[in-house]
Nucleic acid binder design. Structure first.
Length: 506
RNA sequence: CGGGCUGUAGCUCAGCUUGGCUAGAGCGCUGCGUUCGGGACGCAGAGGUCGUAGGUUCAAAUCCUAUCAGCCCGACCA
């Protein structure tokens, strides 16, 4: 008999983190690469997680006064040309539609025919088409604010792709708002950043740092870009959501004008903000372990899976009946304001294999029910944030009545664990030598997990850019909650009044 | 777009240097049996015109040419 591997996922995180990531996606049945270059197929388990994210975010957007709408996938190329910085930023990664018809090529294949007068760009983001519509909708200050969100897919022709983290096509939401005053637009930008942080921490159990991006990392065309930054278990940073204050840049380019209360003509102040399926990647890398994914209860497609232990004798029918009853009892409980989501896995496959499938997918709670448990009216319970073999027999009534508590406890555990990992990998660094050391792997050929979040004094310029490029480190953000502190830039020795977060990043 | 590499079974790959029986393995899949509060084992079986097109040859997965696709390293990035 073959000895089972010590962990469900090979290699482990410490052996080869990038490969581990891919293997988790496969083992948890989240997604796979499609035949289309750079594009992924999101499988039901992965998509359900995304749907749960959507549902939670959508409620948050609506409760902050936003409504959903939908704008076209295809954007006239000339629209992108209107805002100079914006074109510059996105031109290189646009997919372009140039024809509208196919015809036989005479060799059994097809070729494009019917060239378009003006090429259409597949949206990389929708500021331009939405702005165009806003310019028609907005005439008076009474038309403002406009607070619209859209759930959509976008395409960015990236050179290198990784499932969920960077794919050619991805799913996201993009909020686009227009306001009468600068203050109101700035407030909106920050409010949505807060919504993202709230979602990341309280739903994804992923601690984040809210901060502002530097000019270099700013969204093309924005006046200010804010992001939430999370740290993954390999100590690299992941930009998990962005919120942009666009000032009047887009409204000037797109003529989004209105008459204010005094009858004066003014340009609207706009914002945009988004999160994407990248968050699923963040979830994997924040909580996953060497046995696969761990889904935080609040986002789990299933909170509980019931695994009947069937011996193939006459006890089976009774066990199944017991399981069905248990299932409805569990469904009657609520967690996080909704019925507890429970599945009964009665598939005719080996018990061990079945159990491991659910472990790899990250289902928070597994309950095994066999004749013995049934007799004693007990549940044999395993929790995904604990080792696979560590299971506990709990009286059924107690198990059911404490389920919500267990789930909440696990949600909290995951957050605490992630926060602790981040804190352990965060350092104040005040010298360039220490900075280099922090971000240089000891084994250059196959870098071990190293680095983390470095908090340093800085001053933007050539000196800093050169060193960051050399070490493949980037300035993630200037934290909003940081205290003013006098010091000097570790790269240029120029005076500095604030620390920024530096890290290697996805 | 520059540099390196790979296309053989559903997946991971061996075979190619030095052309030669019916193209192989592991995993997965199907069936039967033994097991089973646990990622099991045995036996039997299904599954491939070797990326595509041409060429050389008595003979091509293997050699040559072209072509397509993908991967890795750079510049870009939610």
């Amino acid at each position: 008999m073959a000895k089972p591997p010590p962990h469900a996922i090979q290699p482990t995180r410490s052996e080869d983190y990038p490969e581990w990531y891919q293997q988790v996606i496969r083992a948890a049945d989240l997604a796979e690469v499609s035949p289309v270059r750079g594009c992924m197929v999101i499988k039901p388990w992965g998509y359900s997680i995304w749907e749960n994210m959507q549902a939670a975010l959508d409620r948050m957007f609506k409760s902050t006064g936003h409504v959903n709408a939908y704008f076209p996938l295809l954007i006239p190329m000339s629209y992108l040309e209107k805002e100079a910085a914006h074109v510059e930023g996105f031109a290189k990664e646009c997919a372009v539609v140039t024809h509208h018809r196919l015809e036989p090529d005479g060799e059994g294949g097809l070729r494009p025919a019917g060239p378009l007068e003006e090429p259409l760009v597949v949206r990389p983001t929708s500021e331009t088409i939405i702005g165009e519509m806003y310019s028609k909708w907005i005439q008076s200050y009474r038309d403002l604010p406009i607070l619209i969100n859209q759930w959509a897919n976008v395409v960015r022709w990236e050179m290198r792709t990784r499932l969920f983290l960077r794919t050619t096509e991805f799913l996201w939401q993009e909020g686009h708002t227009a306001h009468a005053t600068q203050a109101e637009a700035e407030e909106e930008t920050r409010k949505m950043l807060d919504v993202y942080a709230d979602f990341a921490e309280n739903w994804m159990a992923m601690p984040v740092i809210k901060g502002e991006k530097t000019a270099e990392e700013r969204f093309p065309g924005a006046v200010a870009t804010y992001s939430i930054e999370a740290m993954m278990q390999d100590r690299k940073a992941l930009q998990a959501g962005t919120s942009h204050f666009l000032g009047q840049n887009f409204s000037r380019a797109q003529e989004i004008k209105f008459q204010d209360e005094t009858g004066q003509e003014a340009y609207a102040w706009t914002t945009s903000w988004g999160v994407s399926t990248r968050l699923v990647g963040g979830l994997i890398m924040t909580h996953g372990d060497d046995d696969g994914m761990i889904v935080p209860p609040r986002l789990a497609p299933q909170h509980v899976v019931i695994l009947p232990v069937l011996r193939g004798d006459d006890s089976s029918a009774a066990v199944m009946e017991y399981c069905h009853t248990l299932k409805s009892q569990i469904e009657a409980e609520s967690f996080n304001g909704q019925p507890v989501r429970v599945a009964l896995d009665a598939r005719d496959i080996r018990g061990g294999e079945k159990t491991w499938q659910h472990i790899k997918r990250g289902v928070p709670i597994r309950v095994e029910i066999g004749p013995r448990d049934m007799e004693g009216d007990h549940c044999f319970v395993g929790r995904r944030d604990q080792p696979p073999k560590q299971k506990e027999s709990i009286p059924r009534a107690q198990f059911v009545s404490t389920l919500a508590e267990q789930l909440q406890n696990m949600q909290q555990q995951l957050f605490d664990r992630a926060l602790q990992a981040r804190e352990e990998a965060t350092r104040d660094i005040d010298t360039l030598d220490e900075f280099r050391d922090f971000f240089t792997p000891k084994q250059p050929k196959q870098p071990e997990i190293h680095g983390g979040l470095a908090r340093c004094h800085f001053s933007e310029g050539e000196e800093m850019s050169a060193i960051l490029k050399e070490l493949k480190v980037s300035l993630r953000c200037i934290p909003l909650e940081s205290e003013r502190e006098d010091g000097e830039c570790i790269f240029s020795k120029r005076p500095s009044h604030r620390r920024a977060i530096f890290a290697k990043a996805y």
